[in-house]
Simulated scan of single mutants.
Amino acid sequence: MAKQERARRTREKVLTAAAEVFASQGYSRATVNAVAERIGMTKGALYGHFPSKKSLAGALIEESRQTWTSLQSEYDTPGSDARKVLEAIVMGFANRLQSDVRLRATVRLAADCPVLAQALSDVLIEVQNALAELVRRAQRDSSLPAYAPGLVAQLLMVVMYGLLHSPAGGAGSDGASGGEPLWRLLFTALSEHKGAGTGHGEGGGVSGP
């Protein structure tokens, strides 16, 4: 058990180091050597945990899917108000993007990792489709106006990723982190214009990364 725990901890260190390298250098410039040097390992020792750079990137992508799934399980419980679930999941995911270098690395990988483009596309499609379904439920069950759910989901994802590049990490004028004031403003704006956008159907779905 002690050996397994050491192996698990080493794997976690390797994944964090890989995420830091991918996030700062991108996939093409990142090397296994750079990851190993970041945590004082030999390249051979690192290969004992991950056989290639591609496998490191793939593990981070799969972890991002698990992060999304765990957020859904945490907030989308039976009987929950769909509007509140939507807001909680979006803000939770956005905050994780701000604080979790592993999740941020997948954003960089999504832009420049052609060898894993399909895996990344699948995760992004899963997230956006889940958001669109939550929007539909919120429109059916509460006061969210009938904007095209796919377009609302796309907007939410654009803002989530855009916060990574905003000044001061997306902090608002009241000092709140993670862009919470921005989310409050966005959800309020989406709720106030009754009937707007009702003629656009179900557009805005995802067909690729």
Rank of each mutant, 00 (worst) to 15 (best):
G175I: 04
N95Y: 05
F187L: 06
V135D: 14
E133M: 07
V115S: 15
S177H: 08
L190G: 08
A117G: 10
A94S: 15
L103F: 10
G172C: 06
R96K: 13
L116N: 09
P167V: 05
H200A: 10
Y161P: 00
G179D: 12
S70C: 05
G150N: 06
A138Y: 11
V123C: 14
S173I: 13
R65Q: 15
E74Q: 11
C113P: 12
G203R: 06
R102C: 14
M160N: 10
V85S: 10
S121E: 15
P78V: 01
T198E: 15
L185H: 08
L144I: 04
M91L: 12
Q128A: 09
A148C: 05
S99N: 11
S80L: 02
P181W: 06
Q72Y: 07
S191A: 11
R96Y: 03
F93Q: 11
R65T: 14
G199N: 11
E133C: 00
L109E: 12
L151F: 11
C113Q: 08
I89R: 07
S80W: 02
E180Q: 06
R184G: 04
L164C: 04
V127I: 15
V127E: 15
L134G: 10
R108D: 09
G175N: 09
E202N: 07
L186G: 03
Y147Q: 04
T69V: 10
T69Y: 08
V152S: 04
L116V: 02
A110G: 15
E74P: 00
D76Q: 03
S177R: 07
T198Y: 12
S191F: 01
P78T: 01
S99K: 07
S142Q: 13
A110I: 01
V85A: 10
G179P: 07
